[in-house]
C-alpha cells in the first residue's frame, strides 16, 4: 500500500473515533431510553409543582362553606375557580390569603348576556341594567346563588 494512503487511513480513523467520542460525550445518558428524546425530561416535567389543589383539600378546613356550596347551583364549580390557586394558602393559611372576588365584572364573566352562551348551561343577566348600583353579592350569596 502506498505510504500516502496509509497516512490518509490513519487520519481517517482518528477523525472518525474523535467524532464518535464527542458524540458519546454530548449525548445525555437517558437519551433514547423511550424514544428519540431525553428520558429524564419526563421525570423533570412530572416533578413540577401543583398549584390548583382541588376542593377536596379545601373541605378539610372549610367544611361548612363547602357543604353550603354543594346544595346550590354552584355545586359543580371548584372553590379555586373563583378564589384562585391555594397551594400557598394550604401551607401558610394566615399569611397567604385567597382572593375574594366581589366585583360585578367578575360575575359577568359567566353571567352577562351573550348569544353564544348556551341558555341551559348558565343563568344570564343584563349586567348594565340589573341593579347597576349594587354589587352582585349584596343580594346573591355566591356559595348558594
Amino acid at each position: 500500500m502506498p505510504s500516502q494512503l496509509k497516512r490518509l487511513l490513519v487520519l481517517g480513523v482518528i477523525i472518525i473515533s474523535l467524532f464518535l467520542l464527542l458524540k458519546h460525550l454530548a449525548t445525555p445518558v437517558s437519551f433514547g431510553q423511550y424514544g428519540h428524546y431525553r428520558g429524564n425530561s419526563l421525570n423533570e416535567i412530572a416533578a413540577l409543582p401543583v398549584k390548583y389543589v382541588g376542593s377536596k383539600t379545601c373541605v378539610k378546613c372549610h367544611d361548612s362553606i363547602v357543604a353550603l356550596k354543594l346544595e346550590g347551583l354552584h355545586s359543580d364549580i371548584q372553590c379555586e375557580n373563583c378564589h384562585g390557586p391555594a397551594y400557598l394558602h394550604i401551607k401558610t393559611p394566615k399569611k397567604d390569603k385567597l382572593f375574594r372576588p366581589d366585583s360585578r365584572e367578575f360575575c359577568a364573566k359567566c353571567h352577562s348576556f351573550n348569544k353564544a352562551r348556551p341558555e341551559k348551561a348558565v343563568t344570564q343577566q343584563d349586567i348594565k341594567n340589573h341593579h347597576p348600583e349594587k354589587k352582585c353579592i349584596t343580594c346573591h350569596n355566591p356559595h348558594q346563588p
Binding site: V50, Y52, C110, V122
Partner: peptide, 15 residues
Amino acid sequence: KCIGCGSCAKTCKIE
C-alpha cells in the same frame, strides 16, 4: 356546554 368564561385559559396560565 362552553359558556366562554375563560376559566380554562386563566387557570392554565397560573398553573
